[in-house]
Every structure is written in structure tokens, then in C-alpha cells.
Computed example of a mutant assay.
Amino acid sequence: MSKEVNWQAECLKKGFEYVREPDDHYVIADPSEMVALLRDLLGVDVRTKEGDSYGVAVSELQEQIDGLVNTLHAQHAERDALLAERDAARMRVKELDLLFGRYLLAMKAAVIDADQRGDEEGMRWIYNSLEGPGELPAEEEMDAQAFFDREIKPINDAMAELFAALQGEQP
């Protein structure tokens, strides 16, 4: 398992000079001190075949670096997926907000038309708003209150569940 390391901070703590250029980063330090830092941070035995203390076991160090790079790539991919999901959710909320606004506007226009030209003209706004997306009630529905009571129950249940979930998110 790779250990996350803030190399710049660790090098600066040791008094090393950390140089950052557009396409490269490097550390200016005594090799034996750098070897000790690598050993402490990564747990890698950094000795050459001859056993001196300032060579680096490149293959072990490269494995550690590759693991860190792979972890970083995976985290970036996960972040990108979460950002895409967030953006899709935002668009869905915007769509629902616009639809809701559209239906409120149609109901307001219906009230104005009913006041000015009669109830039948006002109801035309409501009828057209429901007919367009195919939301008219079935022709066999005869009791408006019974229809409303039956259809509002799952909506109210879902709203109660939503509000309970939102309450749970609050500190």
C-alpha cells in the first residue's frame, strides 16, 4: 500500500532546496540525506550492491513511484466521474425548475384568462399544458377529489421521505 507523501514539504522540512520548473521538479541535497529521507518516507532500503548509503535501489523506488502515480490517476478518474455526476444532477435540477416554472406560468395565465374571458378559456391553458406532454387524466376518471386523493398519496410519501433525508444531512 502506497503512502501519500508531500515531497516539497518533506524536503523543505529537512532544509533541502526544492526546485520547481515548468516541466520538472528536483531536490538539491546531500545524497546520503536524501537516501535517509526516502528510507524514512517510503520504507525503501536504499543501498547499492556495494552497500554504500547514497545509492538508490532504483527498481524498488520506481515501484513506489509507479504506485503513487497509479493512485493519483485513479483518484483523478474518480474525481472526474463525480464532477460529471454532479453536473448531470445540476442540469436535472435546472430542468425540473424550468418545468415547474412553466406549469406555474400556465396556471397564472389560466386564472387571468378565466377572470377576463371566462372559466372555459381559463381551463384551456390547463388542458393544453397537460395535453402536450401526455399528462391528461384518463377519460374514465369522474371524481376529481377521489382522483386527487389517490394520486397525491405517493407524492406526499416521497416528499416526506425526501424531507426526512434532508433533515438527516443537517448538522
Rank of each mutant, 00 (worst) to 15 (best):
M1K: 02
E4T: 08
V5C: 02
W7N: 04
W7G: 05
C11S: 14
L12K: 15
K13M: 01
V19W: 01
V19N: 13
R20G: 00
R20V: 08
D24K: 06
D24N: 10
D24S: 13
H25K: 07
V27W: 05
A29W: 03
A29D: 05
A29Y: 02
P31L: 04
P31K: 03
V35P: 00
L37P: 07
R39D: 09
D40I: 01
L41Q: 14
G43W: 00
D45S: 10
V46S: 12
V46Q: 14
V46T: 15
R47L: 12
E50Y: 02
D52P: 00
D52R: 12
G55E: 08
V58I: 08
S59R: 14
E60Q: 15
L61Q: 10
Q64W: 03
D66G: 03
G67S: 10
H73T: 02
A74D: 03
Q75E: 13
Q75H: 05
E78L: 07
R79I: 02
R79L: 04
D80P: 00
A81R: 10
L82S: 12
L82E: 14
D87S: 13
A89S: 06
M91D: 11
R92M: 07
K94T: 06
D97L: 12
D97N: 09
L98C: 11
F100W: 14
L105C: 10
L105K: 12
M107P: 00
A109H: 12
A110I: 07
I112K: 12
D115L: 08
D119P: 01
D119G: 12
G122S: 04
G122Y: 05
M123Q: 04
R124H: 08
W125L: 04
I126Q: 01
I126R: 01
E131W: 00
G132D: 07
G132T: 07
P133T: 02
E135R: 15
E135Q: 10
P137T: 03
A138F: 08
M142D: 07
M142S: 15
M142C: 07
A146H: 08
D149F: 02
R150Q: 11
R150V: 03
P154S: 06
I155T: 06
M159R: 14
M159H: 05
E161A: 15
A165F: 04
Q167R: 15
Q170V: 12
P171N: 11
